[in-house]
Computed example of a mutant assay.
Amino acid sequence: MAKNKELLNSGKAPEPVGLYPHARRVGNLLFLSGVGPRERGTKNIPGVELDAQGNILNYDIEAQCHSVFRNVRYILEDAGADWDDLVDVTVFLTNMQDDFQTYNRIYAEYFKDNQPCRTTVEVNKLPTPIAIELKCIATIITP
């Protein structure tokens, strides 16, 4: 069992949809739980239009990308890290064929200076009606 582990939650990122923290620090590593584009304090998902049953009618992957990157930044900052501390990013997309090109362009805007390792996979569905989720690892200075 690793020593010096700490659960961290951001006051700006959307609330987790289950029993897990936004991040967990173990030594000099910060592991972020899956982060989506939802907005804190609401069920609003930027760029998503739902029907009465909660099914996705249409969505704007660009709006979701900007929102998910913003949420990752909130968690990093509240944990005492920053964007340049990211070392690994796993990206889950629900529609690789239609969304990869837009996501890849926006990703390049955010990561032009810091280039963490990256894996992008397509998944059938995510737990909420979103089209993108990130799982990240960052380095952090332990006090």
Rank of each mutant, 00 (worst) to 15 (best):
M1K: 12
K5E: 12
L8Q: 04
A13N: 04
H22W: 06
H22K: 08
H22A: 08
R25L: 06
V26N: 03
N28Y: 01
N28C: 02
S33W: 02
G34Q: 02
G36P: 01
P37I: 11
P37D: 03
G41N: 07
G41Y: 04
K43D: 09
K43S: 08
V48H: 02
E49C: 00
E49A: 03
A52H: 12
G54K: 12
N55V: 02
N58R: 15
D60T: 06
D60L: 07
I61R: 00
I61G: 00
A63W: 04
A63P: 00
C65A: 14
S67P: 04
V68C: 03
R70Y: 10
E77L: 15
A81L: 11
D84S: 15
D84T: 14
L86W: 09
V87L: 11
V89W: 07
V89K: 09
T90A: 09
V91L: 10
F92P: 00
T94A: 06
N95M: 07
M96W: 12
Q97I: 13
D99L: 10
Q101P: 01
Q101R: 14
N104K: 14
N104D: 15
E109S: 15
E109R: 14
K112C: 12
P116H: 08
P116I: 13
T120L: 13
V123L: 13
K125E: 14
I130F: 04
I132T: 11
K135D: 02
I141P: 00
